[in-house]
Write a protein that binds this DNA or RNA. Structure first.
Lengths: 245, 245
DNA sequence: ATTTTACACTTTTTCGATATTATTCGGCCA
DNA sequence: TGGCCGAATAATATCGAAAAAGTGTAAAAT
């Protein structure tokens, strides 16, 4: 049956695939987390020997994981010259933001149109979970950020979960991870006091528009929400680091 | 530099990547062609031994190619139970068509806005090449179809080539290949006299709208063009084969 | 008759070694 | 000095075999 198809990337499930305790998968997951977090910096050459040791795997297992990451554009393969972490640039991020706005608002429209009571309940639950951690996140930003990432992802996933388009979910998932990389790397490397941004208020506004089924409002707010990540990083001067490679 | 990044999939270059005469690439290309053409049927289990022999490669080379295809969603990986050719379904194709229309019209808008004289010249050239083969294609449909595929792809690529969004190109490329699989498989397996469809007229109309820089018209025609593939396959009863697996 | 268990067999996954290709470095010549 | 060729070195790409996991069958037990 077609519904059994395993989709390579997506926003539904949080990283782990249904049944796949293979070494390749584990390596892929660790490596992706290392790239997203910036532990493996943009543009870094990925030498086989070093990575084999780092992840405790053999040569082909490693390369398989690498090739999976190529599909998500987190790693670039360069002919016979090995792999490297996909470089980042301001232009790339602007592009991601533009396309992401388009896809996510479309998914939102379809989701609002088709979402039933169960969908609404999911959204309520996801927003609740996110709110709870956003109350506490100012106390312990470092310790809770991993969990916040997850609940933030879950909230955005819930909003569009009633959209039936597999392909929209697929592409949105890819772009979401890309954005996450920019956000996390820029955030961790920004020095000095960071101008606070009331993300929770933005989430709340989107949430209320969702419950009211106000499509236009929800789309507008979502676009702002995505845009603000860009101007936030841009204003914070986070893009300087991407100049040289 | 960011512009040196190699994008895994896309509509620009026709299959072959810049400099990559690696075995993995060759295997990936052959295998993709086999899937697109239907020689490897949807849902088929991909057994390592058989494929090693078929493509004359070792186990890890094969798996690397397989993992690359997973990124394009032409192959699905199932836990520890191997790989299989991604199944097809009418619902999936409808989804592809919907999303493709959205992305391609957006790319068209951006391309029209930014395209200069060089872009126009490219479009003219690509249309000319396509027209020439479409004149001859009724004589020898089988022999020329490969070349037609290529020129058709090139024409559509030229239309949107002035759109600067890498990500749009990336996603459009994936969906284009997916559509191609549906079209080719449905077409090759449809029996009996096929209702002829004047594809050339559709291309010509789009071409003229492009030269006139009539965005609205070009988008509308492109949507029709993409839609017609769907209704063409649907009317031809080509979807029956996707019921059972 | 149905479920359970054990076993043999098939297929996938993983590893380490080898072959191939890039890169670096030093000497040579203009 | 500066550029170019070729050997030495380093890194990647590929292979084939060993290990792990899944699958099916048939006898034993309920």
């Amino acid at each position: 049956m077609a519904s059994d198809v395993i989709w390579p990337h997506g926003l539904q499930h949080g990283g782990k695939r249904p049944g796949s305790p293979t070494l390749v998968q584990a390596t892929y997951d660790s490596m992706r987390e290392d790239i997203l977090s910036g532990r493996l910096q943009p543009g870094t050459k990925l030498r086989a020997e070093a990575l084999k040791e780092r992840y405790n795997v053999g040569a082909s297992t490693l390369r398989e994981a690498l090739n999976l990451l190529v599909g998500e554009a987190l790693v670039a393969s360069e002919g016979q010259k090995g792999f490297r972490v996909t470089p980042m640039s301001e232009a790339d991020f602007r592009d991601i933001v533009r396309v992401r706005k388009m896809l996510e608002t479309q998914a939102l429209r379809e989701s609002f149109e088709l979402g039933d009571d169960d969908w609404e309940a999911e959204v309520v639950a996801a927003f609740h979970r996110l709110s709870r951690i956003e109350e506490r996140v100012s106390d312990d930003p470092a310790g809770l950020s991993g969990e916040w990432e997850e609940r933030n992802r879950a909230f955005h996933a819930a909003l569009i979960s009633a959209c039936p388009s597999r392909w929209l979910h697929h592409f949105i998932g890819i772009l979401f991870h890309q954005s996450e990389r920019y956000r996390r790397i820029a955030f961790s490397q920004s020095q000095g006091p960071v101008k606070r941004r009331d993300v929770h208020a933005e989430h709340e506004a989107i949430y209320e528009a969702a419950i009211a089924r106000d499509v236009a409002q929800a789309c507008a707010l979502t676009e702002q929400h995505i845009d603000r990540t860009l101007s936030f990083l841009s204003d914070g001067g986070a893009f300087h680091q991407f100049g040289a490679q």
